[in-house]
Amino acid sequence: MRVKALETILTEKGLIDPAALDEIIDTYENRIGPRNGAHVVARAWSNPAFRDALLTDATAVVSELGYYGRQGEHMVAVENTDEVHNMVVCTLCSCYPWPLLGIPPGWYKSDAYRARAVREPRKVLADFGVTLPEDTAVRVWDSTAEVRYLVIPQRPAGTEGMDEAALMDLVTRDSMIGAGLALKP
């Protein structure tokens, strides 16, 4: 395997610490993932002042929760409503808000998603089993710079009495990319 060979040479040259690689992998396998984003979304649903601050300056707000970091240095939150459904893609590579959502899923990095999300987002949503109302506009954000986008999905009906922890369970990774909707309770 090519990566093993490269790791071996680089370790011999004193350029790589295999223990550091383990640490990076553990971080993204076990510590940083979409539950961070779900925490942010659930709080935005529960707390109007937090929501307003998030929409105004997402970087500052998520930093306070400890979710600043690599590939999340410049965050913008966009909110789904009855009028507009937001969806995020990176057609040029695979830009994604790592501190909030972790490592992007395979489909996000696929040629099919990168090629199609900008031209036929509704057909792509259909691949995820999602059909939008006819009068909802789709706004696709192509992440062409170092700005990373977090979609705040619509809060499902019937969740009025739920606390932040219960709401978090309804926030899927795909819903924060705009490729899905939040789960119904």
Partner: peptide, 19 residues
């Protein structure tokens, strides 16, 4: 490749599948 035709379906996957 944005806008390109012919790449087929997007295949969803579970959230637990990182690598």
């Amino acid at each position: 490749m944005g806008g390109r035709f012919g790449d087929g379906a997007v295949v969803p996957e579970p959230e637990t599948e990182v690598f």
